[in-house]
Design a protein around this nucleic acid. Structure first.
Lengths: 156, 156
DNA sequence: AACCCTATGTCAAACTGTTGACATGAGGCA
DNA sequence: TGCCTCATGTCAACAGTTTGACATAGGGTT
């Protein structure tokens, strides 16, 4: 035997390459957002709010893949910075609907260009068909891992 | 105008879907490794050491996408648990070559099956050709984001 | 109505990981 | 030799995130 029956080459695992891309992407986004005084989770939160105004803390947390507690402190920071607004009391239930302020929208628009440029650079070698295929594969991979139906703040 | 000129749907961004898959994968791996008393970063470290025995702390850090400092405490934990070994002094330079102990290898082999099962489940909908294509795309996406040549602890 | 279950917001503690800094060893070069 | 640069290991301080817990609001169910 030439190999001690090692597992498959790590680089051949989709999981490893996923982690690798995501690390590079996160690093690139942090660098691009720093001049805008935003972190990557903060930017994600602003994007979610722009797309679906009035999302609650818990819904934002699920959309950004963090816990409610993490999103709560993140929202407090954004609130202190004047980028988002929350009513003092819940209009119904306990959920506090969050919305972007004018400044929040402005900061988002300013940062979005730089972030989209990274997305473009990352997927530059893919044509439209390949990109669609890739997106489909990624979604199906998530569904295969996470049996939950997802109330999907990302969907229409 | 029906839409306020929002940016593209978040779900259509490769970056967002990447984050989503990776979150689901990390969650699934944590759950699968818990019975083995291993965290996902610890498992990654063991895999790296199995594939390339004698890697230094800094090299392991790069391979696992964390800082030297994080990997250092991770290695201390694995050392205290008796899963890895490091010489008291560096044979040359400052790098301390790390190797798996017999118990470390045993724990790795025990856990590997459960992790590979997750990989299989995640990529079940892909045939061999599609999987290869996906791997190639992911690698090229990383390269596009990270211009560094990478001394590649993942390569031969 | 009374009960149970779920979801939400929030507090506190613990952990993990990062940034910043410093000393050590190796190699290159004047 | 001396100096410069780089990489490594390690320490300390910090930030971000998670886990655990609790009270509140709403919807079912009996």
């Amino acid at each position: 035997m030439r190999q001690v029956s090692n597992g498959a080459d790590l680089g051949r695992l989709v999981g490893y390459q996923l982690k690798r891309v995501q690390a590079a992407l996160r690093s690139a986004m942090d660098a691009a957002l720093r001049p805008h005084d935003l972190t990557t989770p903060q930017y994600a939160c602003l994007e979610l709010l722009d797309q679906r105004p009035g999302l609650s803390n818990a819904e934002l947390a699920r959309g950004a893949f963090v816990t409610r507690q993490s999103m709560n402190v993140l929202l407090r920071n954004l609130e202190d910075a004047g980028l988002v607004e929350r009513p003092a009391s819940a209009p119904q239930g306990r959920a506090l609907p969050t919305t972007l302020t004018a400044e929040g929208r402005a900061r988002l628009v300013a940062a979005r260009g730089d972030v989209l440029e990274i997305e473009q650079r990352m997927t530059a070698h893919l044509d439209a068909e390949q990109a669609d295929l890739l997106l489909g594969h990624l979604e199906r991979m998530t569904d295969a891992l996470d049996p939950r139906p997802r109330d999907s703040p990302t969907l229409t």
